[in-house]
Write a protein that binds this DNA or RNA. Structure first.
Lengths: 331, 331
DNA sequence: TTGAAAGCGCTAACAC
DNA sequence: GTGTTAGCGCTTTCAA
């Protein structure tokens, strides 16, 4: 099979240490360097990262656990994170857990066995105890988009409350008073925050949030559609709606389409994420967008930094990023 | 750090081979089994897959190379493939190459060093020589959605020509004669096939395809939008259009929206992939959809099969799957 | 069934 | 600078 450094040593007549030194950027006599390079070329030698990993106790692999790869928000972040990490020589091992906490724990186990050097996770639940197996092993954990109870790690968050507050504020400014919201699952951190922002904006305008105006979806297209239907059926007086994630935005639009409701004449609409979809809708949707690339860069940078430090657990960081608002014609 | 089988051996007073045998499902005396299990429990022992990989020369990792993770067609397939493989104990290492052939070669190199057991790839180019380093090492390669020149591997394809032919046939049946097509990059296999299907349908209806009715996009949203603009500007007599991938479908719709063209009154439209988007559009779009889940299952099954065979290169397979058509109100 | 021992390919002391 | 050597944690003969 593949050549090893032993073969190179034999071929060049040099010792193992010299080859290893060359491979790791050490100093090697010019003459030998050439010999080594020739031998590598000739034998098609390639470092065996597995053996290296065993020896150094570093795999140069980062585990990534996400609720759903097939979700544009996740995909955008992961794409960028993977890119950043790979450019630094780190491979990524992605586990899609289908928003299932049990699978998530299994994935942690799985990655632990694989001896990944660090873990990046966008958790489904709130509890993070099972992550402590990582932190205890001195391996860095970076959490995306959620706050986790009981784990010692860095996190990169988005100002969800502010985003929702701002969006609902815009509806209020446009004169709306009966504003509905399609919220996410009650047990998900971002969903809670966005709902809080919605309530906050209403209260600031002197309006008491009414339960009938809130529907709790599940961050899926189907959930968005049925929540939309529920709200419309229940509240004939509702004049505007704020939908709090991309999948549900799409679902809501599908349902609105289905019901023949006209935007913005009969209902004003503010959605979430995915500029392209917003532009493709008729009329163009006004939406809140999250800075996925920025999130990804922060995540990768944090991970890389922790990896370098190797052990110095100086206080963990929690970065919080701002969302943007893209104006359409749906309000 | 983590416990090793040596620790277990010491603790139980047994030999290494016994522990290893237990770990790999071998026969161990009941009494010893219990002792081992207790020790494992107590010491929090976990198999080190890296060491195992070095010894067995199998990493139980499958490399996946794709043009763009942030592309729903890819994401859907990868999600399912990853799921299937993980359920069989295989981890996946995903490399997103941003549709860049140079990056793709780098990724192959990268994964080769990592000693992945197999490779699943959706290539950007047509040439696959650089994949031979895998096949020569006796490692299975499965290609998705493209036909590659000069590589010995399995592939899972979609009947693109038939799909396009069918779609255009529907437009013809609806009475259209001046039908435009937004095709993909000329050097991509699927794009060529879809274009061929378009031409075929026209010819079958006695119409000679005209160059002015074809715009060559690049499978991106922006590309779809500008191709749309180009076609509309160039052909005032065009009454229908067929767009040949999801991103361009979205781009085309954005542009149509921008230009204020009404569907289907002024222009009939058939798009590609992503049922949800099609449903969310006004009017609902008629689209061709690819069986992503089925593709993924075939890919995973083929890979797993090859992995088991370990070396018997009995003739390689090329599975070809059918697309579906989802009727909307855009024709 | 179990134990001893060798070795997978590499790195890292250490001595020269 | 370079060679020698020991081992990372595991599997796998081979004997017992």
């Amino acid at each position: 099979m593949a050549a090893t450094i032993k073969d190179i040593a034999k071929k060049t007549g040099l010792g193992l240490a010299t080859i290893s030194s060359y491979l790791n950027g050490g100093n090697v006599r010019e003459k030998n360097r050439i010999k080594i390079e020739e031998a590598i070329e000739e034998l098609h030698f390639e470092v065996n990262e597995v053996a290296r990993g065993l020896k150094t106790n570093k795999t140069k692999i980062i585990g990534i656990i996400i609720p759903e790869l097939n979700n544009i928000f996740c995909a955008e972040i992961i794409t960028e994170v993977e890119d950043q990490l790979r450019s630094q020589g780190y491979a990524t091992m992605i586990c899609d857990c289908r928003t299932d906490e049990r699978r998530e724990e299994e994935a942690v186990e799985f990655l632990l066995h694989r001896r990944v050097d660090g873990l990046i996770i966008m958790p489904s639940g709130r509890q993070g105890k099972y992550l402590n197996r990582f932190t205890k092993a001195g391996k860095p954990v970076v959490v995306i988009d959620r706050k986790l109870d009981g784990v010692d790690c860095d996190s990169v968050l988005v100002d969800n409350e502010g985003a929702a507050r701002d969006a609902v504020g815009r509806l209020l400014k446009a004169g709306h008073r009966k504003i509905g919201m399609i919220a996410g699952p009650k047990d998900i951190y971002t969903a809670q925050e966005r709902y809080r922002g919605y309530c906050l904006a209403l209260k600031e305008a002197g309006i008491e949030p009414e339960a009938r105006f809130a529907a709790w979806g599940d961050y899926t297209i189907e959930g968005g559609a049925s929540a939309m239907k529920e709200l419309v059926t229940r509240n004939s007086d509702m004049t505007a709606i704020f939908v709090s994630n991309y999948e549900m935005t799409m679902g809501a639009i599908i349902e609105i389409n289905e019901l023949g409701i006209r935007i913005p004449d009969e209902l004003s609409f503010i959605g979430f994420d995915n500029v392209e979809f917003a532009k493709a809708s008729i009329p163009k949707l006004s939406i809140v967008t999250q800075p996925t690339e920025e999130i990804a860069r922060h995540v990768a940078a944090l991970m890389l930094k922790r990896l370098e430090e190797s052990g110095d657990t100086d206080g963990h960081q929690a970065v919080k990023l701002k969302t943007s608002f893209v104006e359409g014609k749906s309000v």
